[in-house]
Computed example of a mutant assay.
Amino acid sequence: MFLFRRNGVGSRARLRALRLLYGSFIKQNGPEARARRLLRDWLSPEQRAQFDAEGYFEVTGSHTGRRYRIYQGSVSNVLEVDEKGQPKIGWCFVPERPLVAGDIMLAQKIALETDELAVLAVANRFYPNPIRLPGLVRRAY
């Protein structure tokens, strides 16, 4: 009750501290954070290490054995890579309902690992632009 006394000494500092606490709680427990935690729980240790280091993880298709690289994002973020790890073709497919990026990436991972051919039948194909590929151009900081 006495936390928000209008004319009390330090009430602004308390209110600022409470806002910071609430903001950090939302940041740690919001939809994006929960989706990212769920995604990390479903990744293998190798995929998790790759995701932490590179910002993407690779999965193997269930039918053809092709390798796919799933980048952080929600649209046009799946690339098929060749034996050398170079991007060959891009695939764009997302769930029907709007979801946060972590949930979309998890759905893409599960779809490719369980029913690759059905996914590719509905996916849009695109040719990746090597200049704009995430992860190829590193920031200086």
Rank of each mutant, 00 (worst) to 15 (best):
M1W: 00
F4C: 00
R5Y: 01
R5C: 02
R6A: 02
R6K: 05
N7D: 04
N7P: 02
N7K: 04
G8L: 01
G8D: 00
G8P: 02
V9P: 06
G10R: 14
R12C: 04
R12L: 04
R14K: 08
L15P: 05
L15C: 12
L15K: 11
L15V: 14
R16S: 12
R16N: 08
A17F: 02
A17H: 07
A17N: 13
A17V: 00
L18T: 14
L18D: 12
L18Y: 06
R19Q: 11
L20P: 00
L21F: 02
L21D: 01
G23K: 03
S24W: 10
F25N: 04
I26W: 06
I26G: 01
Q28P: 01
N29R: 10
N29F: 13
N29Q: 09
P31Q: 09
P31I: 05
A33N: 02
A35V: 04
A35R: 03
R37F: 07
R37V: 06
L38G: 04
L39N: 11
L39G: 07
R40Q: 13
W42P: 01
L43I: 07
S44L: 12
S44E: 06
E46G: 08
R48T: 11
A49L: 02
Q50N: 05
Q50E: 15
Q50W: 04
Y56F: 12
Y56Q: 01
F57N: 13
F57Q: 12
F57L: 05
V59E: 15
V59W: 11
T60L: 10
S62H: 02
H63E: 15
T64I: 01
G65N: 03
R67M: 11
R67S: 08
I70F: 09
I70C: 12
Y71F: 13
Y71S: 13
G73E: 11
S74G: 10
S76W: 01
N77S: 05
V78Q: 07
V78M: 15
L79E: 04
E80S: 02
V81F: 01
V81H: 02
D82C: 10
Q86W: 05
Q86G: 03
P87M: 06
K88F: 08
W91H: 12
C92G: 01
C92D: 15
V94I: 00
P95G: 09
P95M: 05
P95A: 12
P95I: 09
E96H: 12
R97W: 10
R97F: 13
P98K: 05
P98S: 05
V100F: 02
A101N: 07
M105E: 07
M105W: 06
A107F: 08
Q108A: 06
Q108F: 08
K109D: 13
K109Y: 11
I110S: 04
I110K: 15
A111G: 10
A111Y: 13
A111C: 07
L112K: 09
T114C: 02
T114A: 10
T114K: 06
D115R: 11
L117Y: 10
L117R: 11
V119I: 07
V119M: 01
L120N: 00
A121F: 06
A121Q: 14
V122W: 00
A123D: 12
N124E: 15
N124Q: 14
R125H: 06
F126S: 03
P128W: 04
N129R: 11
P130N: 03
R132G: 13
L133C: 11
P134E: 03
P134V: 05
G135W: 15
L136Y: 14
L136S: 09
L136M: 09
V137C: 07
V137Q: 14
R138G: 08
R138N: 14
R139W: 05
A140C: 14
